[in-house]
């Protein structure tokens, strides 16, 4: 990978919690238009990395480079304007709102006045409908999100990201363990969505534990251990490496 196609980089990125370095001097590059999996044993700092990238955790050292702009501070609500969106490992839906509203709410005007007097509701409904149909939740659109099964909840998070990404050209999509706890049929749905996103030229950062899925979906794999960079390369090579296997076994 040459430097020019890196759309997202971290430079010596560090994040500490009470003296523990959850992300430790991490410098990685994410290639544009590819699926990059970030793997590593539990506690290796993968989720902290997504939280830092999405502004939910502050940057303690180093920087994040997005579209060639070095950032020392990311505010969560700036994410879409950097062309980035994400799902959450611990599903975060708007529980007491209908499924449809969970998607619609990410599509509307960002300003107070814009949202108050918005007029293009039908257009947004079309986008939300497309996203919900892709994950098979359109029939559930009027039910509160809290009534969905665990798998459906994860799918709704993905629909939210799809809708936002389709409407706003958010071309970097962080998926934090999207397959965990899904039934095989749902796994198929999500993996075909990931492939479709890549085929559209979007950049997917996938955090995942399932090795078969990592082999199937990733163009590139980055391994983290104890917050640090451990290895990177093609899935087939990286997953065979002794230090990578030891990091997982030592868990």
């Amino acid at each position: 990978m040459t430097k020019t196609d890196a759309i997202l980089k971290t430079r010596n990125l560090t994040k500490q919690f009470d003296g523990v370095r959850a992300v430790d001097d991490l410098s990685i590059s994410i290639a544009k238009g590819k699926v990059t999996s970030v793997i590593g044993p539990n506690g290796s700092g993968k989720t902290t990395l997504t939280n830092v990238l999405s502004g939910l955790a502050s940057i303690d050292g180093g920087s994040v480079v997005l579209h060639s702009v070095a950032l020392k501070k990311i505010r969560p609500f700036d994410m879409p304007s950097y062309g980035m969106t994400r799902t959450f490992q611990e599903v975060r839906l708007f529980e007491q709102m209908p499924v449809l509203d969970n998607v619609l709410v990410v599509l509307t005007e960002r300003s107070v006045f814009g949202a108050l007097f918005e007029r293009h509701g039908a257009f947004h409904e079309k986008q939300a409908e497309e996203a919900l149909k892709k994950v098979g939740l359109w029939e559930k659109r009027n039910e509160p999100a809290s009534t969905l099964s665990y798998g459906q909840r994860k799918l709704l998070e993905i629909a939210r990201v799809l809708a936002l990404s389709a409407g706003r050209q958010t071309d970097i999509i962080l998926l934090d363990e999207p397959f965990a706890g899904l039934f095989p049929k749902m796994v198929k749905t999500v993996s075909s969505i990931v492939k479709a996103l890549r085929d559209e030229g979007r950049t997917v950062v996938l955090i995942e534990h399932n090795m078969d899925l990592i082999r199937e979906l990733s163009d590139h794999v980055i391994v983290m251990d104890s917050g640090k960079f451990l290895a990177e390369g093609r899935a087939a090579e990286v997953l065979e490496r002794r230090d990578v296997i030891e990091a997982y076994l030592g868990e």
Binding site: G55, T85, R92, R110
Partner: peptide, 12 residues
């Protein structure tokens, strides 16, 4: 429902 989550979708 979840202030942090909606922030990530671009709302201040």
């Amino acid at each position: 429902e979840d202030e942090k989550a909606i922030q990530v979708f671009g709302y201040n």
